[in-house]
Simulated assay, not measured.
Amino acid sequence: MTVGTQTAAMRLDSVTKTYGEGDNAVTALRGISLEVPRGTFTAVMGPSGSGKSTFLHCIAGLDQPTTGRVFLGDTELSGLKEAQLTAVRRERIGYVFQAYNLMSALTVRQNITLVARLADMAVDEAWLRELLTRVGMSEYVDRRPGQLSGGQQQRVAIARALATRPDALLADEPTGALDTRTSQEVLKLFRQVVDEIGQTVLMVTHDPVAASYADTVLFLADGQLAGRLYKPSPAEVAEHMTHLGDW
């Protein structure tokens, strides 16, 4: 299924990414074309070496494709200069990683507002209060990361990613360091920001249970799109993963 470009939050047109040259060349992505609709939760899965990380780096503007084009909304990232790319990544894309990447010397509030302050943007206090409420961290605004659990730190990282009201939130194995119960809380939070405020979320994961929270699961194998499932169960995701070796 494709959607019109007017409703696409992100789009890849025939994206290929090759590292190295000649006999040492390694092709990580092979002609991928797809669209991610606005206001949806998309999971990306695939075996090790399938191109998941390269896919995420290209769609985030962290890496340039060898051929093809990458769009964030109507903005072609693959055509921007580095200074322009930096501004887009800072203001229009939110990032959540397996490692929370919080600043240990800063409070919860300071961590969440860090990106806005670095960009010399005014902090929207009403939005900040709503974010703190949504992630369940209103009582902890003056604490530092070392005083928080892993799940609480990831909630702060999610609030930080949402602070600039980004076009897209990109998550790389966001539950990889969390226990099962805390992982479910984080995934429910992603689901809520998609359903309640129309946030676009794209998540790379190895976990079929995490992927089952998404509207769509995209599968990569050998740098190519190897199928997709809509609102699947964890069992359906796991079953599809077992057949990716056939690619």
Score class of each variant (00 low, 15 high):
Ala9Cys: 12
Gln154Phe: 00
Val217Glu: 01
Thr200Glu: 06
Arg109Ser: 13
Glu196Cys: 12
Thr27Tyr: 14
Leu56Lys: 07
Thr18Val: 15
Trp247Ile: 08
Arg38Asp: 09
Ala157Asp: 03
Val70Leu: 08
Ala28Arg: 13
Ala122Tyr: 11
Ala177His: 07
Val123Phe: 09
Gly51Leu: 06
Arg191Val: 04
Glu130Asn: 15
Asp142Trp: 15
Ala171Met: 08
Glu82Asp: 14
Leu162Glu: 02
Thr113Gly: 07
Leu29Asn: 11
Val141Gly: 02
Arg92Asp: 02
Leu229Gly: 02
Leu225His: 10
His57Ile: 11
Leu12Thr: 07
Ala126Ile: 09
Glu130Asp: 15
Ala159Cys: 05
Phe55Cys: 10
Ser138Cys: 07
Ala43Thr: 05
Ser183Glu: 01
Ala116Thr: 10
Thr42His: 14
Met10Gln: 15
Ala83Thr: 08
Ala211Lys: 02
Gly73Tyr: 08
Ile112Cys: 03
Arg181Trp: 04
Gly49Asn: 11
Gly198Glu: 01
Asn101Asp: 03
Thr5Arg: 15
Val209Cys: 01
Gln224Ser: 06
Leu85Cys: 04
Pro166Gln: 06
Pro145Gln: 07
Leu225Ala: 05
Ala60Gln: 10
Arg144Lys: 14
Ala238Cys: 01
Leu29Glu: 06
Met10Cys: 11
Arg92Cys: 01
Ser14Tyr: 09
Gln110Ile: 03
Thr27Met: 13
Phe219Ser: 00
Thr54Gln: 10
Leu148Cys: 06
Phe71Gly: 04
Asn111Arg: 13
Ala25Pro: 14
Ser53Gly: 10
Ala83Val: 00
Thr86Lys: 09
Gln98Cys: 03
Gly227Tyr: 11
Asp120Trp: 14
Leu169Gly: 08
Pro174Phe: 00
Ser78Lys: 07
Leu244Gln: 00
Phe97Gly: 01
Val209Thr: 08
Ser149Met: 11
Val156Gln: 10
Lys188His: 05
Lys52Ala: 02
Pro232Cys: 02
Ala116Asp: 05
Val115Cys: 09
Val237Phe: 01
Gly20Cys: 10
Leu148Glu: 05
Phe190Asp: 00
Lys52Pro: 08
Asn24Gln: 14
Gln6Ser: 15
Gln154Glu: 02
Asp172Phe: 03
Glu82Asn: 08
Gly227Lys: 06
Leu131His: 13
Val194His: 02
Leu220Pro: 06
Leu118His: 05
Arg38Met: 08
Ile93His: 03
Glu236Cys: 04
Ser53Ile: 07
Arg160Tyr: 11
Ala122Gln: 15
Pro37Ala: 12
Ser14Thr: 13
Lys188Gln: 06
Phe190Thr: 03
Gly79Ala: 05
Thr175Trp: 04
His240Asp: 04
Thr27Cys: 09
Ala83Lys: 11
Ala28Thr: 12
Gln64Gly: 03
Met103Asn: 04
Glu236Arg: 06
Ser33Asn: 14
Gly79Met: 08
Asp13Thr: 11
Thr7Arg: 13
Met1His: 14
Asp167Asn: 14
Thr75Phe: 02
Leu131Cys: 06
Gly68Tyr: 09
Thr7His: 14
Ser14Phe: 10
Ala235Gln: 12
Leu132Arg: 15
Asp246Thr: 07
Leu106Thr: 02
Ala238Gln: 10
Gln64Asp: 13
Gly223Pro: 09
Tyr230Thr: 05
Leu131Val: 07
Asn111Val: 04
Ala177Ser: 10
Tyr19Met: 07
Gly198Leu: 04
Phe71His: 13
Gly136Lys: 14
Met203Gly: 04
Gln153Met: 08
Gly176Thr: 00
